[in-house]
Design a protein around this nucleic acid. Structure first.
Lengths: 221, 221
DNA sequence: GATACCGTCTTGGGATACCAAGATGGTATC
DNA sequence: GATACCATCTTGGTATCCCAAGACGGTATC
Protein backbone atom coordinates (compact mmCIF):
# COMPACT_ATOMS: atom_id res chain seq x y z
CA UNK A 1 0.00 0.00 0.00
CA UNK A 2 1.29 3.45 -0.91
CA UNK A 3 2.17 5.95 1.77
CA UNK A 4 -0.65 8.15 0.57
CA UNK A 5 -3.28 5.48 1.15
CA UNK A 6 -1.61 4.59 4.41
CA UNK A 7 -1.72 8.11 5.78
CA UNK A 8 -5.23 8.65 4.46
CA UNK A 9 -6.53 5.48 6.09
CA UNK A 10 -4.89 6.00 9.46
CA UNK A 11 -5.76 9.66 9.64
CA UNK A 12 -9.36 8.90 8.74
CA UNK A 13 -9.53 6.28 11.46
CA UNK A 14 -8.09 8.67 14.02
CA UNK A 15 -10.61 11.36 13.09
CA UNK A 16 -13.62 9.04 12.92
CA UNK A 17 -12.54 7.37 16.15
CA UNK A 18 -12.35 10.78 17.84
CA UNK A 19 -8.67 10.22 18.65
CA UNK A 20 -8.28 13.65 17.12
CA UNK A 21 -11.10 15.82 18.32
CA UNK A 22 -13.50 17.77 16.10
CA UNK A 23 -12.21 21.30 15.70
CA UNK A 24 -8.61 20.36 16.44
CA UNK A 25 -5.89 22.05 14.43
CA UNK A 26 -3.74 19.93 12.16
CA UNK A 27 -0.40 20.80 10.63
CA UNK A 28 1.09 18.93 7.74
CA UNK A 29 4.32 18.73 9.69
CA UNK A 30 2.68 17.04 12.64
CA UNK A 31 1.03 14.40 10.46
CA UNK A 32 4.31 13.94 8.64
CA UNK A 33 6.18 13.08 11.84
CA UNK A 34 3.24 11.18 13.34
CA UNK A 35 3.08 8.70 10.46
CA UNK A 36 6.66 8.82 9.29
CA UNK A 37 5.73 9.97 5.82
CA UNK A 38 6.86 12.97 3.88
CA UNK A 39 4.64 15.90 3.07
CA UNK A 40 3.74 14.76 -0.42
CA UNK A 41 1.56 11.82 0.66
CA UNK A 42 0.37 13.82 3.66
CA UNK A 43 -0.93 16.57 1.45
CA UNK A 44 -2.59 14.08 -0.87
CA UNK A 45 -4.32 12.45 2.08
CA UNK A 46 -5.52 15.79 3.41
CA UNK A 47 -6.99 16.70 0.03
CA UNK A 48 -8.89 13.43 0.02
CA UNK A 49 -10.20 13.86 3.55
CA UNK A 50 -11.18 17.40 2.67
CA UNK A 51 -13.54 16.16 -0.03
CA UNK A 52 -14.98 13.71 2.50
CA UNK A 53 -15.67 16.58 4.87
CA UNK A 54 -13.48 15.15 7.64
CA UNK A 55 -10.98 17.97 7.56
CA UNK A 56 -11.42 21.48 6.28
CA UNK A 57 -9.28 24.46 5.47
CA UNK A 58 -9.07 26.99 8.22
CA UNK A 59 -7.79 30.02 6.40
CA UNK A 60 -4.23 28.94 6.08
CA UNK A 61 -3.97 25.55 7.71
CA UNK A 62 -6.10 22.53 8.39
CA UNK A 63 -8.72 21.72 10.98
CA UNK A 64 -10.55 18.53 11.84
CA UNK A 65 -14.10 19.43 10.84
CA UNK A 66 -16.25 20.40 13.83
CA UNK A 67 -19.49 18.56 14.41
CA UNK A 68 -22.12 20.79 12.89
CA UNK A 69 -25.69 20.38 14.10
CA UNK A 70 -27.28 22.11 11.13
CA UNK A 71 -25.19 20.00 8.80
CA UNK A 72 -26.28 16.80 10.53
CA UNK A 73 -29.91 17.70 9.95
CA UNK A 74 -29.31 18.47 6.27
CA UNK A 75 -27.41 15.25 5.76
CA UNK A 76 -30.26 13.30 7.30
CA UNK A 77 -32.70 14.87 4.84
CA UNK A 78 -30.39 14.01 1.98
CA UNK A 79 -29.81 10.41 3.02
CA UNK A 80 -33.52 9.93 3.62
CA UNK A 81 -34.20 10.80 -0.01
CA UNK A 82 -31.42 8.59 -1.29
CA UNK A 83 -32.02 5.59 0.94
CA UNK A 84 -35.75 5.62 0.32
CA UNK A 85 -35.13 5.68 -3.41
CA UNK A 86 -32.74 2.76 -3.05
CA UNK A 87 -35.07 0.65 -0.98
CA UNK A 88 -37.91 1.23 -3.42
CA UNK A 89 -35.71 0.01 -6.25
CA UNK A 90 -34.75 -3.01 -4.22
CA UNK A 91 -38.37 -3.91 -3.49
CA UNK A 92 -39.00 -3.97 -7.23
CA UNK A 93 -36.31 -6.60 -7.78
CA UNK A 94 -37.13 -10.25 -8.30
CA UNK A 95 -34.39 -11.60 -6.11
CA UNK A 96 -34.21 -9.92 -2.72
CA UNK A 97 -32.64 -12.85 -0.90
CA UNK A 98 -29.58 -10.75 -0.08
CA UNK A 99 -31.55 -9.18 2.76
CA UNK A 100 -30.68 -12.32 4.68
CA UNK A 101 -27.02 -11.38 4.62
CA UNK A 102 -27.90 -8.02 6.10
CA UNK A 103 -30.13 -9.64 8.71
CA UNK A 104 -27.15 -11.81 9.67
CA UNK A 105 -25.08 -8.64 10.15
CA UNK A 106 -27.66 -7.43 12.65
CA UNK A 107 -27.72 -10.84 14.36
CA UNK A 108 -23.97 -10.70 14.87
CA UNK A 109 -24.42 -7.99 17.50
CA UNK A 110 -25.47 -9.02 20.98
CA UNK A 111 -24.98 -8.01 24.61
CA UNK A 112 -21.32 -8.99 24.54
CA UNK A 113 -20.46 -7.04 21.41
CA UNK A 114 -18.11 -4.10 21.59
CA UNK A 115 -19.49 -0.61 21.01
CA UNK A 116 -17.16 -0.23 18.06
CA UNK A 117 -18.84 -3.15 16.39
CA UNK A 118 -22.36 -1.85 16.98
CA UNK A 119 -21.25 1.45 15.55
CA UNK A 120 -19.74 -0.12 12.46
CA UNK A 121 -22.64 -2.49 11.79
CA UNK A 122 -25.11 0.35 12.27
CA UNK A 123 -23.45 2.19 9.41
CA UNK A 124 -22.91 -0.85 7.23
CA UNK A 125 -26.57 -1.79 7.55
CA UNK A 126 -27.57 1.32 5.65
CA UNK A 127 -24.76 1.07 3.13
CA UNK A 128 -25.42 -2.57 2.34
CA UNK A 129 -29.16 -1.97 2.22
CA UNK A 130 -28.55 0.69 -0.42
CA UNK A 131 -26.22 -1.64 -2.28
CA UNK A 132 -29.07 -4.08 -2.87
CA UNK A 133 -30.54 -1.54 -5.26
CA UNK A 134 -27.62 -2.16 -7.58
CA UNK A 135 -27.11 1.56 -8.03
CA UNK A 136 -23.52 2.47 -7.24
CA UNK A 137 -24.26 6.18 -6.91
CA UNK A 138 -26.96 5.68 -4.34
CA UNK A 139 -24.50 3.54 -2.40
CA UNK A 140 -21.85 6.21 -2.65
CA UNK A 141 -24.21 8.92 -1.45
CA UNK A 142 -25.25 6.80 1.53
CA UNK A 143 -21.66 5.93 2.38
CA UNK A 144 -20.67 9.56 2.18
CA UNK A 145 -23.53 10.58 4.44
CA UNK A 146 -22.76 7.85 6.97
CA UNK A 147 -19.12 8.90 7.06
CA UNK A 148 -20.11 12.47 7.85
CA UNK A 149 -22.51 11.28 10.53
CA UNK A 150 -20.10 8.73 11.94
CA UNK A 151 -18.49 10.79 14.69
CA UNK A 152 -21.79 12.08 15.98
CA UNK A 153 -23.14 8.55 16.08
CA UNK A 154 -20.63 7.52 18.75
CA UNK A 155 -22.97 9.29 21.13
CA UNK A 156 -26.04 7.38 20.07
CA UNK A 157 -24.16 4.14 20.42
CA UNK A 158 -23.57 4.86 24.12
CA UNK A 159 -27.32 4.66 24.67
CA UNK A 160 -28.42 1.06 25.18
CA UNK A 161 -32.09 1.87 24.61
CA UNK A 162 -31.39 3.75 21.40
CA UNK A 163 -29.45 0.79 20.04
CA UNK A 164 -32.25 -1.61 20.79
CA UNK A 165 -34.78 0.64 19.13
CA UNK A 166 -32.56 1.12 16.09
CA UNK A 167 -32.04 -2.60 15.67
CA UNK A 168 -35.76 -3.28 15.91
CA UNK A 169 -36.39 -0.65 13.25
CA UNK A 170 -33.69 -2.16 11.07
CA UNK A 171 -35.34 -5.56 11.28
CA UNK A 172 -38.76 -4.11 10.49
CA UNK A 173 -37.34 -2.46 7.39
CA UNK A 174 -35.75 -5.70 6.24
CA UNK A 175 -39.02 -7.54 6.77
CA UNK A 176 -40.84 -5.10 4.51
CA UNK A 177 -38.14 -5.41 1.87
CA UNK A 178 -38.25 -9.18 2.06
CA UNK A 179 -42.01 -9.03 1.52
CA UNK A 180 -41.49 -6.69 -1.40
CA UNK A 181 -43.68 -4.06 0.22
CA UNK A 182 -42.07 -0.90 -1.11
CA UNK A 183 -44.43 1.51 0.61
CA UNK A 184 -43.98 -0.07 4.03
CA UNK A 185 -40.23 -0.34 3.60
CA UNK A 186 -39.97 3.29 2.47
CA UNK A 187 -42.18 4.48 5.29
CA UNK A 188 -40.30 2.57 7.98
CA UNK A 189 -36.91 3.58 6.64
CA UNK A 190 -37.98 7.19 6.45
CA UNK A 191 -39.31 7.15 10.00
CA UNK A 192 -36.13 5.46 11.21
CA UNK A 193 -33.89 8.07 9.65
CA UNK A 194 -35.96 11.01 10.85
CA UNK A 195 -36.20 9.51 14.34
CA UNK A 196 -32.47 8.83 14.51
CA UNK A 197 -31.75 12.32 13.37
CA UNK A 198 -33.97 13.89 16.00
CA UNK A 199 -32.54 11.78 18.80
CA UNK A 200 -29.03 12.50 17.60
CA UNK A 201 -29.47 16.24 17.36
CA UNK A 202 -31.25 16.43 20.70
CA UNK A 203 -28.61 14.31 22.37
CA UNK A 204 -25.79 16.35 20.86
CA UNK A 205 -27.48 19.55 21.85
CA UNK A 206 -27.75 18.35 25.43
CA UNK A 207 -24.21 17.02 25.58
CA UNK A 208 -22.83 20.10 23.94
CA UNK A 209 -21.23 21.40 27.10
CA UNK A 210 -19.62 18.12 28.02
CA UNK A 211 -18.28 17.63 24.52
CA UNK A 212 -16.78 21.09 24.44
CA UNK A 213 -15.19 20.38 27.80
CA UNK A 214 -13.45 17.44 26.15
CA UNK A 215 -12.21 19.83 23.48
CA UNK A 216 -14.70 18.74 20.84
CA UNK A 217 -16.03 21.57 18.73
CA UNK A 218 -19.79 21.31 18.27
CA UNK A 219 -21.19 24.21 16.33
CA UNK A 220 -24.80 25.11 15.65
CA UNK A 221 -24.32 26.20 12.07
CA UNK B 1 -5.39 32.15 -7.22
CA UNK B 2 -3.08 29.30 -6.31
CA UNK B 3 -1.50 27.15 -8.97
CA UNK B 4 -3.44 24.19 -7.69
CA UNK B 5 -6.80 25.89 -8.19
CA UNK B 6 -5.59 27.20 -11.51
CA UNK B 7 -4.63 23.80 -12.86
CA UNK B 8 -7.74 22.20 -11.43
CA UNK B 9 -10.02 24.79 -13.00
CA UNK B 10 -8.40 24.77 -16.43
CA UNK B 11 -8.09 21.02 -16.57
CA UNK B 12 -11.71 20.62 -15.55
CA UNK B 13 -12.78 23.02 -18.27
CA UNK B 14 -10.75 21.17 -20.88
CA UNK B 15 -12.26 17.85 -19.85
CA UNK B 16 -15.84 19.10 -19.57
CA UNK B 17 -15.45 21.00 -22.85
CA UNK B 18 -14.28 17.79 -24.54
CA UNK B 19 -10.99 19.47 -25.46
CA UNK B 20 -9.48 16.36 -23.96
CA UNK B 21 -11.49 13.38 -25.08
CA UNK B 22 -13.08 10.81 -22.76
CA UNK B 23 -10.75 7.87 -22.40
CA UNK B 24 -7.65 9.88 -23.26
CA UNK B 25 -4.48 9.16 -21.33
CA UNK B 26 -3.02 11.89 -19.15
CA UNK B 27 0.47 12.14 -17.76
CA UNK B 28 1.40 14.40 -14.91
CA UNK B 29 4.34 15.60 -16.98
CA UNK B 30 2.14 16.66 -19.88
CA UNK B 31 -0.18 18.64 -17.63
CA UNK B 32 2.85 20.14 -15.93
CA UNK B 33 4.24 21.51 -19.18
CA UNK B 34 0.81 22.38 -20.58
CA UNK B 35 -0.03 24.69 -17.68
CA UNK B 36 3.44 25.72 -16.66
CA UNK B 37 3.04 24.38 -13.14
CA UNK B 38 5.11 21.88 -11.26
CA UNK B 39 3.93 18.43 -10.31
CA UNK B 40 2.83 19.36 -6.82
CA UNK B 41 -0.21 21.41 -7.88
CA UNK B 42 -0.78 19.07 -10.81
CA UNK B 43 -1.11 16.09 -8.52
CA UNK B 44 -3.38 17.99 -6.17
CA UNK B 45 -5.62 18.93 -9.09
CA UNK B 46 -5.74 15.35 -10.35
CA UNK B 47 -6.72 14.08 -6.92
CA UNK B 48 -9.57 16.57 -6.85
CA UNK B 49 -10.79 15.71 -10.33
CA UNK B 50 -10.56 12.05 -9.42
CA UNK B 51 -13.10 12.52 -6.64
CA UNK B 52 -15.33 14.36 -9.11
CA UNK B 53 -15.15 11.39 -11.45
CA UNK B 54 -13.62 13.39 -14.29
CA UNK B 55 -10.36 11.50 -14.30
CA UNK B 56 -9.60 8.04 -13.01
CA UNK B 57 -6.62 5.89 -12.27
CA UNK B 58 -5.72 3.55 -15.07
CA UNK B 59 -3.51 1.07 -13.26
CA UNK B 60 -0.43 3.21 -13.13
CA UNK B 61 -1.32 6.51 -14.71
CA UNK B 62 -4.32 8.71 -15.30
CA UNK B 63 -7.15 8.62 -17.81
CA UNK B 64 -9.91 11.06 -18.60
CA UNK B 65 -12.98 9.10 -17.49
CA UNK B 66 -14.82 7.50 -20.40
CA UNK B 67 -18.49 8.23 -20.87
CA UNK B 68 -20.26 5.31 -19.27
CA UNK B 69 -23.81 4.58 -20.36
CA UNK B 70 -24.69 2.46 -17.33
CA UNK B 71 -23.27 5.14 -15.07
CA UNK B 72 -25.37 7.83 -16.73
CA UNK B 73 -28.52 5.85 -16.02
CA UNK B 74 -27.59 5.33 -12.39
CA UNK B 75 -26.74 8.98 -11.93
CA UNK B 76 -30.11 9.95 -13.34
CA UNK B 77 -31.85 7.71 -10.81
CA UNK B 78 -29.84 9.28 -8.04
CA UNK B 79 -30.44 12.85 -9.07
CA UNK B 80 -34.13 12.16 -9.53
CA UNK B 81 -34.37 11.15 -5.89
CA UNK B 82 -32.37 14.12 -4.71
CA UNK B 83 -33.96 16.77 -6.90
CA UNK B 84 -37.46 15.60 -6.14
CA UNK B 85 -36.72 15.74 -2.43
CA UNK B 86 -35.35 19.26 -2.85
CA UNK B 87 -38.30 20.54 -4.84
CA UNK B 88 -40.73 19.12 -2.28
CA UNK B 89 -38.92 20.97 0.47
CA UNK B 90 -39.02 24.13 -1.60
CA UNK B 91 -42.75 23.86 -2.18
CA UNK B 92 -43.24 23.75 1.58
CA UNK B 93 -41.49 27.09 2.03
CA UNK B 94 -43.38 30.31 2.60
CA UNK B 95 -41.28 32.45 0.30
CA UNK B 96 -40.71 30.85 -3.08
CA UNK B 97 -40.20 34.10 -4.96
CA UNK B 98 -36.66 33.07 -5.89
CA UNK B 99 -38.15 30.94 -8.67
CA UNK B 100 -38.38 34.17 -10.61
CA UNK B 101 -34.60 34.42 -10.69
CA UNK B 102 -34.45 30.94 -12.15
CA UNK B 103 -37.16 31.77 -14.66
CA UNK B 104 -35.04 34.74 -15.72
CA UNK B 105 -32.13 32.40 -16.31
CA UNK B 106 -34.29 30.41 -18.71
CA UNK B 107 -35.47 33.61 -20.40
CA UNK B 108 -31.89 34.66 -21.07
CA UNK B 109 -31.57 31.92 -23.69
CA UNK B 110 -33.02 32.53 -27.13
CA UNK B 111 -32.37 31.69 -30.76
CA UNK B 112 -29.20 33.76 -30.82
CA UNK B 113 -27.68 32.20 -27.74
CA UNK B 114 -24.54 30.14 -28.02
CA UNK B 115 -24.76 26.41 -27.43
CA UNK B 116 -22.29 26.78 -24.56
CA UNK B 117 -24.73 29.05 -22.82
CA UNK B 118 -27.70 26.72 -23.26
CA UNK B 119 -25.56 23.94 -21.89
CA UNK B 120 -24.51 25.93 -18.85
CA UNK B 121 -27.97 27.28 -18.07
CA UNK B 122 -29.44 23.81 -18.47
CA UNK B 123 -27.17 22.59 -15.68
CA UNK B 124 -27.53 25.68 -13.50
CA UNK B 125 -31.30 25.42 -13.67
CA UNK B 126 -31.22 22.17 -11.74
CA UNK B 127 -28.54 23.30 -9.32
CA UNK B 128 -30.28 26.57 -8.49
CA UNK B 129 -33.62 24.84 -8.23
CA UNK B 130 -32.12 22.52 -5.64
CA UNK B 131 -30.56 25.47 -3.85
CA UNK B 132 -34.01 26.91 -3.15
CA UNK B 133 -34.52 24.05 -0.72
CA UNK B 134 -31.84 25.56 1.50
CA UNK B 135 -30.20 22.17 1.92
CA UNK B 136 -26.54 22.41 0.99
CA UNK B 137 -26.10 18.66 0.67
CA UNK B 138 -28.92 18.28 -1.80
CA UNK B 139 -27.31 21.07 -3.82
CA UNK B 140 -23.95 19.36 -3.68
CA UNK B 141 -25.42 16.04 -4.80
CA UNK B 142 -27.16 17.71 -7.73
CA UNK B 143 -24.05 19.65 -8.71
CA UNK B 144 -21.98 16.50 -8.56
CA UNK B 145 -24.47 14.64 -10.72
CA UNK B 146 -24.67 17.46 -13.28
CA UNK B 147 -20.89 17.58 -13.50
CA UNK B 148 -20.76 13.89 -14.25
CA UNK B 149 -23.50 14.24 -16.85
CA UNK B 150 -22.06 17.40 -18.34
CA UNK B 151 -19.98 15.92 -21.14
CA UNK B 152 -22.76 13.65 -22.34
CA UNK B 153 -25.14 16.59 -22.37
CA UNK B 154 -23.20 18.33 -25.14
CA UNK B 155 -24.97 15.92 -27.44
CA UNK B 156 -28.44 16.79 -26.24
CA UNK B 157 -27.66 20.45 -26.69
CA UNK B 158 -27.02 19.92 -30.40
CA UNK B 159 -30.65 18.97 -30.82
CA UNK B 160 -32.86 22.03 -31.24
CA UNK B 161 -36.06 20.13 -30.54
CA UNK B 162 -34.70 18.57 -27.37
CA UNK B 163 -33.71 21.99 -26.07
CA UNK B 164 -37.16 23.40 -26.68
CA UNK B 165 -38.80 20.49 -24.93
CA UNK B 166 -36.41 20.73 -21.99
CA UNK B 167 -37.07 24.46 -21.57
CA UNK B 168 -40.83 23.93 -21.68
CA UNK B 169 -40.52 21.26 -19.02
CA UNK B 170 -38.32 23.55 -16.92
CA UNK B 171 -40.96 26.26 -17.05
CA UNK B 172 -43.71 23.83 -16.14
CA UNK B 173 -41.73 22.72 -13.10
CA UNK B 174 -41.19 26.30 -12.00
CA UNK B 175 -44.89 27.04 -12.41
CA UNK B 176 -45.78 24.18 -10.09
CA UNK B 177 -43.21 25.31 -7.54
CA UNK B 178 -44.50 28.86 -7.72
CA UNK B 179 -48.00 27.57 -7.05
CA UNK B 180 -46.67 25.53 -4.15
CA UNK B 181 -48.00 22.33 -5.69
CA UNK B 182 -45.44 19.84 -4.44
CA UNK B 183 -46.99 16.81 -6.09
CA UNK B 184 -47.19 18.42 -9.51
CA UNK B 185 -43.67 19.83 -9.21
CA UNK B 186 -42.28 16.48 -8.12
CA UNK B 187 -44.10 14.64 -10.85
CA UNK B 188 -43.02 17.02 -13.61
CA UNK B 189 -39.43 17.12 -12.40
CA UNK B 190 -39.32 13.35 -12.19
CA UNK B 191 -40.73 12.97 -15.70
CA UNK B 192 -38.27 15.55 -17.01
CA UNK B 193 -35.28 13.76 -15.54
CA UNK B 194 -36.38 10.33 -16.69
CA UNK B 195 -37.20 11.65 -20.16
CA UNK B 196 -33.88 13.46 -20.46
CA UNK B 197 -32.05 10.36 -19.36
CA UNK B 198 -33.78 8.17 -21.92
CA UNK B 199 -33.18 10.60 -24.75
CA UNK B 200 -29.58 11.01 -23.69
CA UNK B 201 -28.81 7.32 -23.46
CA UNK B 202 -30.57 6.57 -26.73
CA UNK B 203 -28.78 9.39 -28.47
CA UNK B 204 -25.41 8.34 -27.10
CA UNK B 205 -26.05 4.76 -28.05
CA UNK B 206 -26.81 5.79 -31.60
CA UNK B 207 -23.85 8.15 -31.87
CA UNK B 208 -21.51 5.65 -30.30
CA UNK B 209 -19.70 4.90 -33.52
CA UNK B 210 -19.22 8.51 -34.47
CA UNK B 211 -17.99 9.41 -31.02
CA UNK B 212 -15.48 6.58 -31.02
CA UNK B 213 -14.30 7.74 -34.41
CA UNK B 214 -13.52 11.09 -32.80
CA UNK B 215 -11.50 9.20 -30.21
CA UNK B 216 -14.09 9.47 -27.46
CA UNK B 217 -14.40 6.40 -25.30
CA UNK B 218 -18.05 5.50 -24.74
CA UNK B 219 -18.42 2.32 -22.75
CA UNK B 220 -21.56 0.36 -21.95
CA UNK B 221 -20.64 -0.52 -18.39
C1' DG C 1 1.28 50.53 31.20
C1' DA C 2 -0.32 50.46 26.52
C1' DT C 3 0.63 50.31 21.85
C1' DA C 4 3.04 50.21 17.64
C1' DC C 5 6.72 48.21 15.21
C1' DC C 6 9.99 44.82 13.86
C1' DG C 7 12.37 40.40 13.77
C1' DT C 8 11.72 35.46 14.06
C1' DC C 9 9.48 31.29 13.54
C1' DT C 10 5.95 28.40 11.80
C1' DT C 11 3.29 26.79 8.03
C1' DG C 12 1.34 25.77 3.68
C1' DG C 13 2.41 26.29 -1.49
C1' DG C 14 5.47 25.11 -4.95
C1' DA C 15 9.64 23.17 -7.38
C1' DT C 16 12.77 19.62 -8.06
C1' DA C 17 15.67 15.58 -7.48
C1' DC C 18 15.57 10.68 -6.90
C1' DC C 19 13.61 6.05 -7.07
C1' DA C 20 11.29 1.80 -8.42
C1' DA C 21 8.33 -0.34 -11.52
C1' DG C 22 6.51 -1.00 -15.83
C1' DA C 23 6.55 0.01 -20.88
C1' DT C 24 9.28 0.06 -25.02
C1' DG C 25 12.33 -1.03 -28.43
C1' DG C 26 16.31 -3.02 -30.16
C1' DT C 27 19.34 -6.91 -30.58
C1' DA C 28 21.00 -11.40 -30.48
C1' DT C 29 20.01 -16.09 -30.81
C1' DC C 30 17.67 -19.97 -32.60
C1' DG D 1 11.75 -14.48 -39.52
C1' DA D 2 10.30 -15.20 -34.80
C1' DT D 3 11.17 -14.93 -30.13
C1' DA D 4 13.42 -14.19 -25.88
C1' DC D 5 16.15 -11.14 -23.34
C1' DC D 6 18.18 -6.88 -21.95
C1' DA D 7 19.09 -1.79 -21.96
C1' DT D 8 16.63 2.36 -21.77
C1' DC D 9 13.07 5.44 -21.16
C1' DT D 10 8.84 6.94 -19.17
C1' DT D 11 5.98 7.69 -15.29
C1' DG D 12 3.93 7.97 -10.91
C1' DG D 13 5.45 7.92 -5.79
C1' DT D 14 8.25 10.04 -2.48
C1' DA D 15 11.48 13.05 -0.10
C1' DT D 16 13.32 17.42 0.43
C1' DC D 17 14.42 22.11 -0.39
C1' DC D 18 13.02 26.95 -0.99
C1' DC D 19 9.76 30.65 -0.57
C1' DA D 20 6.23 33.94 0.87
C1' DA D 21 2.75 34.99 4.05
C1' DG D 22 1.04 35.21 8.46
C1' DA D 23 1.32 34.28 13.56
C1' DC D 24 3.82 35.31 17.63
C1' DG D 25 6.61 37.67 20.75
C1' DG D 26 9.65 40.97 22.32
C1' DT D 27 11.08 45.64 22.57
C1' DA D 28 11.06 50.39 22.28
C1' DT D 29 8.52 54.50 22.38
C1' DC D 30 4.94 57.40 23.97
Amino acid sequence: MSQMQNVEKQLREMILGLEIGPGERLTERWIESRFGASRTPVRAALLRLDTEGLVCRDGRGWTVSPINLAELEQIAVCREAVEVAAVKLTCALEDRSAVDVIEAMLDSCDAGTLREEWHRVGMDFHIELARLSGNEFLVRAVRDAMTRLSRARWLEVRDEAALGRAWAEHRAILAAVRAGDADAAAHRLSAHIVGSRDRLVTSLHNDRRGLRARGFAVVAA
